[in-house]
Amino acid sequence: MSDLPQQVTATPAALSLIDELKAAHGPLMFYQSGGCCEGSAPMCFPEGEFRIGSRDVKVGEIGGFPFYISPQQFEYWKHTQIIIDVVPGFGAAFSLEGPGGLQFLTRSRVFTDDEIGALRNAGRI
């Protein structure tokens, strides 16, 4: 359904960094951390290096790679579009971009009523 709003998207800067990480590490995957060691940071791993739980939710793809979130986090965020950006700094130590002086950052926007309706009708929320 192409009329559905994307539940996760990435800025041009994030997509550029994803391309660099792909060139260095091969296929990737993303997970929106919900706390613990890394706070609420979007985490980037080589594909298969992070174990996805059976209840984790795939909310979409960025840069052609899957983006997952825990079911608890999804309940909080299901009415928002997750926008992955990049900022200078050393963020998530477990994420591939961590040592490079840049870090992925989650921004968001609340879906409109029409977007929420479309996602609900499609069974996405």
Rank of each mutant, 00 (worst) to 15 (best):
E38I: 10
G48E: 01
G89A: 03
S54R: 13
G100E: 13
S54Y: 06
S54F: 04
I116Y: 00
V87P: 00
M29N: 06
L21G: 11
F65R: 01
P71S: 06
D113I: 06
G89L: 01
S2D: 14
G39R: 09
S2M: 04
H25A: 09
F74R: 07
S54E: 15
A13T: 01
E20I: 11
E115V: 07
G53F: 10
M1A: 12
E115F: 08
D56V: 08
G101N: 09
S54D: 14
I84D: 00
D113N: 11
D113A: 15
V87A: 14
F104S: 03
G98M: 08
G117R: 05
L17N: 03
F50D: 00
F65V: 01
Q72A: 04
K78L: 05
E115Q: 09
F67A: 01
G63R: 10
L4N: 07
G35T: 06
G60L: 00
D85N: 04
G64Y: 01
I69V: 13
S33A: 15
F45E: 07
E97I: 10
P5D: 05
Q81P: 02
A41G: 14
D56I: 05
Q72W: 00
R124H: 10
G39T: 12
F111Q: 05
S16F: 11
Q103T: 14
L4A: 05
W77N: 04
I83P: 02
V57T: 01
A118F: 08
L17Y: 04
T9K: 08
F74K: 08
F30L: 15
F94H: 09
I18V: 15
R109Q: 09
Q6F: 11
K22H: 15
E47Y: 14
G117W: 08
L17F: 01
A24E: 15
R120M: 08
V59L: 13
W77T: 03
E97A: 14
I84F: 10
F90G: 11
T11G: 07
V57Y: 01
A14L: 08
S95R: 03
P99G: 02
C36E: 13
A122L: 02
G89I: 04
S2G: 08
A23L: 15
F104D: 12
V59W: 02
P42G: 11
F90T: 11
S70F: 09
F65D: 02
S70C: 00
S70R: 01
S33I: 00
E20Y: 12
S2R: 12
G53D: 12
I84N: 11
